[in-house]
């Protein structure tokens, strides 16, 4: 069975790129463009990995990360945070997120990180 990965990213092109890369490696990616739709539809299935962009049109990705990491039902799920703001690296380090990807990223580094989080 394919591993499910939820991606919370507002830019359509970037989410398309990520969906392509994940599908190529045999994952099943669900894309959400904002926090609202993620909250509405994202809870229907529990993913193996959550990838979240920090700057979202309706909120901060760090808040979603913290919410999932404090919920006993979801806190075991690895979370990767992404941003074009390199400065978030330090906020991510202080959070319970499992990793940080700085944009623009190298696709090999990105896929390595995904694989590492999924224990592949």
């Amino acid at each position: 069975m394919k591993k499910a990965i939820h991606v919370l990213e507002d830019d359509a092109d970037i989410s398309e790129l990520i969906a392509f890369l994940l599908a190529e490696s045999g994952y099943e990616a669900s894309i959400f463009n904002n926090i609202a739709s993620f909250k509405q539809h994202g809870g229907k299935s529990v993913p193996a990995l959550l990838i979240i962009d920090i700057m979202l049109p309706d909120g901060n990705g760090l808040d979603i990360c913290n919410a999932w990491k404090t919920d006993p039902a979801t806190k075991h799920i690895p979370i990767l945070l992404m941003s074009a703001y390199d400065d978030y690296r330090h906020d991510v380090r202080a959070s319970k997120a499992n990793g940080f990807i700085s944009k623009p990223f190298d696709i090999e580094v990105f896929m390595d990180e995904v694989g590492r989080q999924l224990g592949a």
Binding site: D11, D13, I14, A84, Y85, K103, P104, F105, I107
Partner: peptide, 18 residues
């Protein structure tokens, strides 16, 4: 502006690497 510039940069870099 630098944040906005980095967004297309991310996709272009991805496309080129693919």
């Amino acid at each position: 502006a630098s944040h906005e510039l980095k967004t297309p940069l991310t996709t272009v870099k991805g496309y080129l690497q693919i």
